Simulated assay, not measured.
Amino acid sequence: MSDNKTVKVTLVKSTIGRLPAHKACVSGLGLRKMHQTVSVIDTPENRGMINKVSYLLKVEEA
Rank of each mutant, 00 (worst) to 15 (best):
4 N>C: 08
4 N>D: 13
4 N>F: 10
6 T>A: 03
6 T>C: 02
8 K>D: 10
8 K>T: 08
8 K>L: 13
10 T>R: 11
11 L>N: 05
12 V>Y: 04
12 V>N: 02
13 K>Y: 11
13 K>T: 01
15 T>G: 12
15 T>Y: 06
16 I>Y: 14
16 I>H: 09
16 I>K: 14
17 G>I: 10
17 G>H: 08
17 G>N: 09
17 G>W: 11
18 R>F: 11
19 L>S: 14
20 P>Q: 13
21 A>R: 14
22 H>Q: 15
24 A>Y: 09
24 A>T: 07
25 C>G: 01
27 S>Q: 13
27 S>I: 11
29 L>K: 00
30 G>N: 02
30 G>E: 02
30 G>H: 03
32 R>K: 15
33 K>S: 13
33 K>V: 03
34 M>C: 07
35 H>A: 08
35 H>I: 04
36 Q>W: 12
37 T>D: 06
38 V>F: 03
38 V>D: 00
39 S>Q: 14
39 S>C: 06
39 S>W: 06
41 I>A: 12
41 I>G: 01
44 P>K: 05
45 E>C: 02
46 N>Y: 03
47 R>W: 00
47 R>M: 10
48 G>V: 05
48 G>A: 06
48 G>Y: 02
50 I>M: 10
51 N>Q: 11
52 K>D: 03
52 K>T: 10
52 K>E: 12
56 L>I: 06
56 L>C: 04
57 L>V: 01
58 K>T: 05
58 K>R: 15
58 K>H: 14
59 V>R: 07
60 E>T: 10
60 E>H: 12
60 E>G: 00
61 E>M: 14
61 E>K: 15
62 A>W: 01
62 A>N: 15
62 A>R: 11
